[in-house]
């Protein structure tokens, strides 16, 4: 605290009144906007007792929705992870024509409404669409089936991993890879022994975010899935359906699953960020002189 006689805040912009006001208003708004709805979901889900909740969860349509959501994530997340690593690598380690353009392209899903993506996929894969007739003739069903759901989810989450990796890989530069190569390591060896260990926390964080978004995606998926109960309904779509059926408890029970998933994601994110903070910085960026106090073993 500052010396009371001088009545000056210890730092610029640190006057107690402003500080208290800001913290209080953020807490109040956060509670109303974020926390209250979460509490309501859990409360409503259990409002008719745990048995009713369990019954709602094990209902075949709900189980199918959970299965479909998990399957979508199992396909979309690994593909987008590989895509994100490749994109971040290309953008940060190579100089080429159209590099900035690629950066913008990767970010498009961030700025576009998911429902626009869904509609666009209808035009590409639908029966009147670009590839639709050809795919239909070949007997491949994209729309109103798992492939369409996966594609729409992948579109929406395409930037997540790349966005996490690009700043980090940019800061790391090419020195480490060049050092490994000059020591005789092959490309794969360099990637697995040098590149990957140094981006692993950011990568995991990107994967967690991608997963959360894939499981929660509503807009794009609702257009391409066709909303067929028990067949092409993912968990978010199923929640909406239950809600429109006036099955409030069922809707909230299903919603509580997604909520728990979200909480797990947040915990994972916090843990990863803590790990990331303990990660040894690049030697050159760490303090130039004198031993740094030993941090957590980064391996």
């Amino acid at each position: 605290m500052s010396a009371p006689s001088r009545r000056k805040p210890p730092r610029v912009g640190d006057s107690p009144a402003i500080r208290r006001m800001l913290i209080a208003s953020v807490l109040v708004v956060g509670a109303i906007l974020v926390l209250a709805p979460l509490v309501v979901i859990l409360y409503q889900a259990f409002s008719r007792g745990i048995d009713y909740f369990a019954e709602a969860i094990v209902h075949p349509d709900t189980r199918h929705a959970i299965w479909l959501t998990a399957a979508t994530a199992l396909i979309a997340v690994p593909i987008n992870t590989a895509f994100g690593i490749a994109a971040a690598w290309a953008i940060t380690k190579f100089e080429f024509r159209g590099r900035r353009f690629l950066l913008v392209v990767i970010e498009i899903p961030f700025s576009i409404s998911p429902i626009v993506a869904g509609v666009a996929y209808l035009f590409v894969y639908g029966l009147q669409g670009l590839f639709g007739p050809a795919l239909d003739a070949a007997g491949v069903k994209v729309l109103f089936a798992l492939p369409g759901i996966v594609l729409a989810s992948m579109f929406v989450t395409a930037p997540f991993v790349a966005r996490e990796l690009i700043p980090l890989m940019q800061a790391q530069g090419r020195d480490l890879e060049e050092a490994a190569t000059s020591l005789g390591a092959s490309g794969w060896r360099t990637f697995f022994s040098v590149t990957l260990p140094n981006i692993r926390w950011a990568l995991l964080y990107g994967v967690v975010l991608t997963n959360a978004r894939v499981m929660g995606e509503f807009g794009a998926v609702s257009v391409v899935s066709g909303n067929i109960r028990g067949q092409t309904n993912t968990l978010p779509l199923h929640i909406e359906l239950l809600y429109h059926d006036y099955n409030t408890v069922g809707a909230f029970a299903a919603a509580s699953i997604l909520t728990v998933l979200a909480i797990v994601t947040i915990v994972a994110k916090v843990l990863l960020e803590r790990q990331g903070a303990g990660r040894g910085g690049r030697p050159a960026l760490a303090s130039p002189q004198g031993p740094v106090s030993p941090q957590g073993n980064p391996s």
Binding site: D175, A185, R189, V194, P197, R279, P298
Partner: peptide
Amino acid sequence: VGFVFQHYALFPHMTVAENVAFGMKV
């Protein structure tokens, strides 16, 4: 060739001994 980088380019996730051993391992 042995190349020594301006900012050392030591592998931050490996110990000093692992760094030195890297070239022999690969």
